[in-house]
Every structure is written in structure tokens, then in C-alpha cells.
């Protein structure tokens, strides 16, 4: 495709991203830096503030479908699941708007989502994070990293690797238009296990990657190695997802009272 086609593609992907993903990096950064006119997020830093947040201050309802639990680690685990499930729903709608995606076999669309959504989520999570914590509940709450670290094992191990990734990833200073193409490239990945039409997926991903490369040259002209750095981040994200899947398996095995949302069960089953 020529330059103007790639620009059109970048624009389509960017529009789809802004339309379907509820929290943009732009909005998150303005909340985190206190530059927004809306009220600052409620800070959750211990058990008391968590229950205050749960009593309607931050979340309007208890984690839907999650059984009531007094154990704080388990509770946080359910909250993570709720957010993940909601984001998978948004990512699915985003994927459908990426040119070429709906032309794929339905089974290939499923495969791409199964393997891609967690990588995509961990690529978007840094937008909500700084080194001290992360925004939750659509920006209404801020959970401190220290609080998440203080949970008992294995729950304390859920978010820390994502913070470590986020600090490095945020140094690249991507904006929503870069992230839109980056996330689209993650979803349209040709080497997911079990794809029926690899060529077709590779062709779509290739177009997205070319659009991303061109977009970065214009949007980050001072950062020459940004494109290869992002390709490396894709590999890092795959590793992060593998570790996350192992941790979820461990929680399932050792924490017999916890349950996994049916959608997440589907995604994790026979994943890696």
C-alpha cells in the first residue's frame, strides 16, 4: 500500500480505538496529573479504603458474579477479572473495526482474540499506571502499588510484573494514536497457534505494521529506533502473558475457593 493508504488505515484504526476503548491514555494522564476539572480519584491504599471504595464510593456495585468474600486478595483478584472481561468486550468491538479483521474466518477471529487480548490489555494498562499505582473504575479510583504488593501471596504477585513493564513502556511516551496501531498489530498476529489462514492474517498485520512505522516517523520524528523497540515490546508482552497465565493456573490450583470467570476460563484453556 502507498503512503496515503497507510495514513487512511492509521486514521481508521485510531478512530476505532477512540470509539471502543472507554479509557484513553490522554484522559488517564490528565486524571493522574490532576489537570482535569473532575474530582480527583479516591485513593485505595489499605483494607479500610478498599471497603470504603466498595461501599459505592468508587464502584457502583460489587464485582458482578463474584461471590462475596472476606479475603482481600481474593477480592482484588475478582476485581481484576471484572476489568479484564469488560476490556475483552471492548477489544472485541475494536478488533471488528480493524480493516480486514471481519473478513477472516470466524474461527481465526476467535483464535486472534484468545491469544491477543491479554497482550493488548497489558499494553494498554501502562496508560493507567505510574510508578506508584493505577487508575481503576473508569478513573474514579487509584489503587496504590504498595497496597497491591502488601496482599498475601500469590495475590501480591498479580500486578507487580505489570508495573515493572509499565514503567519501561511509559518511557517510550506513546500516545493514543500510536497505541491504537500497536494494539491492532498485536491482535492481527500471524503466528497464533491453530490459525487456519495464516497468510491472510500476516497480510493484514503487515499493513498495520507499515502504517505504524510511517505514523511513528511523523509522530515521533526525534525517536529513531521507536519502531524496532515496539517490536521488541511485543515479544516482552508475550512473556508477560505467559507468566500471567501460569500465575492464574497456580491460583486456581492452590486457592480452591476462588473461581475464574467463564470467559477467562475459555481464553486460558489450552492457551500455552
Amino acid at each position: 500500500p502507498g503512503g496515503s493508504d497507510l495514513k487512511t488505515l492509521a486514521k481508521q484504526v485510531n478512530t476505532a480505538y477512540l470509539k471502543n476503548l472507554s479509557m484513553t491514555k490522554k484522559r488517564a494522564r490528565s486524571i493522574l496529573s490532576g489537570k482535569t476539572s473532575s474530582t480527583s480519584p479516591f485513593v485505595i491504599y489499605d483494607v479500610d479504603t478498599l471497603w470504603k471504595a466498595e461501599s459505592g464510593l468508587v464502584w457502583s456495585q460489587l464485582a458482578p458474579g463474584a461471590p462475596l468474600t472476606k479475603e482481600i486478595g481474593v477480592h482484588v483478584f475478582y476485581r481484576c477479572q471484572c476489568t479484564t472481561v469488560e476490556t475483552v468486550r471492548e477489544l472485541t468491538e475494536f478488533a471488528k473495526c480493524i480493516p480486514g479483521f471481519v473478513d477472516l474466518f470466524l474461527n481465526d477471529q476467535v483464535t486472534l482474540l484468545k491469544y491477543g487480548v491479554h497482550e493488548a490489555i497489558f499494553a494498554m494498562l501502562p496508560s493507567l499506571m505510574n510508578k506508584d499505582g493505577l487508575l481503576v473504575a473508569n478513573g474514579k479510583g487509584f489503587v496504590t502499588r504498595e497496597f497491591l504488593r502488601s496482599l498475601r501471596k500469590p495475590f501480591s504477585e498479580i500486578m507487580e510484573p505489570k508495573f515493572e513493564f509499565a514503567v519501561k513502556f511509559n518511557a517510550l511516551e506513546l500516545d493514543d494514536s500510536d497505541l491504537a496501531l500497536f494494539v491492532a498489530a498485536i491482535i492481527l498476529c500471524g503466528d497464533r497457534p491453530g490459525l487456519m489462514n495464516v497468510k491472510q492474517v500476516e497480510q493484514s498485520q503487515d499493513n498495520i505494521l507499515q502504517a505504524l512505522d510511517l505514523h511513528l516517523q511523523a509522530n515521533h520524528s526525534d525517536s529513531v529506533y521507536l519502531f524496532p523497540k515496539l517490536l521488541q515490546k511485543m515479544a516482552d508482552l508475550r512473556q508477560l502473558v505467559t507468566e500471567n497465565a501460569q500465575l492464574v493456573q497456580k491460583i486456581k490450583k492452590t486457592e480452591s475457593e476462588t473461581s475464574l470467570h467463564p470467559l477467562l476460563q475459555e481464553i486460558y484453556k489450552d492457551m500455552y
Binding site: C82, R89, E93, K96, N107, K114, H261, I267
Partner: peptide, 20 residues
């Protein structure tokens, strides 16, 4: 197909929120 029932559902319905 049965193995990924909810993903199929999400891909095919744009309005149904799926019972979360």
C-alpha cells in the same frame, strides 16, 4: 466452537453485553 462459546458470542453480537 463450543470451546469458545463466549468469544463467538462476543464476535457475533454487537449489542448483547454477554452475561458478565
Amino acid at each position: 466452537k463450543e470451546k469458545h462459546k463466549i468469544l463467538h458470542q462476543l464476535l457475533q453480537n454487537s449489542t448483547s453485553p454477554v452475561d458478565l
